[in-house]
């Protein structure tokens, strides 16, 4: 049984936003208009957070892509009154749209703000109607939605493996964001498989002391790992000051 996880190497991330667009297209996420943004009701299963570091002129932009952390002890799960969000045995925090009654407790309880509520029926311009992904349910008004590690891709690969009477191969599945990333900053795979790309990357980065997780101290055991940025200039600065 795989345990899906993700590694995001912030040293490679250039903040291009390809992951955001890929996710939007892959998962039938409605298009956020300016109006929706101002109401703070925009839906983006993975978002790109930008921080400024330092003072002008030595200012640097820092980017952190934030998908759902797929916490092992997810705080969003126990608050759902109808069990519309639950943990699969592959470690994915699933949202069952047809079960959701829209209490939004889960969104309140999520520290990463990666759960989104459909305040309106989703709409697309006519030119985009035929680009909807048939493998993903279009969520109607009144239900929560969130990143689920492109579970339709995982299910499809597992079904393909079943039809071909074999086990799922290492790194056979990848998410839309990882696939779209031009610098391979996002890597997806099985954390329990020592041969998978994520495990190798984590083992190496652990050695370099770069691994951390967002809000790790809350104890929810997120399955999205971040690798710290290697800032050569910052490391050189204290030495230069002397």
């Amino acid at each position: 049984m795989p345990r899906w996880g993700m590694v995001i190497d912030l040293d490679r991330c250039i903040g291009c936003g390809a992951c955001v667009v890929a996710c939007q297209a892959e998962n039938n996420v409605p298009i956020n208009t300016e109006d929706v943004y101002h109401q703070r009701r925009a839906i983006a299963w993975i978002r790109l957070e930008r921080y400024w570091e330092g003072e002008f002129p030595n200012i640097k932009a820092r980017y952190i892509p934030v998908p759902c952390m797929q916490c092992t002890n997810a705080p969003c799960e126990p608050v759902c009154p109808v069990y519309a969000t639950y943990h699969t045995n592959e470690g994915i925090n699933m949202q069952v749209y047809n079960r959701c009654i829209g209490t939004r407790y889960c969104a309140v309880n999520c520290h990463w703000h990666v759960r989104f509520f459909n305040f309106w029926e989703p709409k697309w311009p006519d030119s985009l109607k035929n680009q909807l992904n048939p493998d993903v349910t279009v969520r109607s008004r009144g239900v929560m939605e969130k990143c689920n590690f492109c579970v339709h891709r995982i299910v499809k690969a597992e079904q393909k493996a079943k039809v071909e009477k074999r086990e799922l191969r290492t790194d056979e599945v990848t998410t839309a964001c990882a696939q779209a990333c031009p610098t391979n900053a996002i890597v997806f795979g099985d954390l329990d498989d020592p041969n998978s790309a994520v495990s190798k990357l984590l083992a190496q980065a652990e050695h370099e002391g770069r691994v951390y997780r967002l809000l790790e101290d809350l104890g929810t055991d997120p399955k999205v790992y971040y690798l710290k940025k290697v800032d050569i200039e910052a490391a050189a600065e204290p030495a230069a000051a002397h």
């Binding site: 699933m94 069952v96 047809n98 339709h152 299910v155």
Partner: peptide
């Protein structure tokens, strides 16, 4: 029989 077999 868990939900995500069919619903996702």
């Amino acid at each position: 029989t868990d939900c995500s077999v069919c619903h996702y």
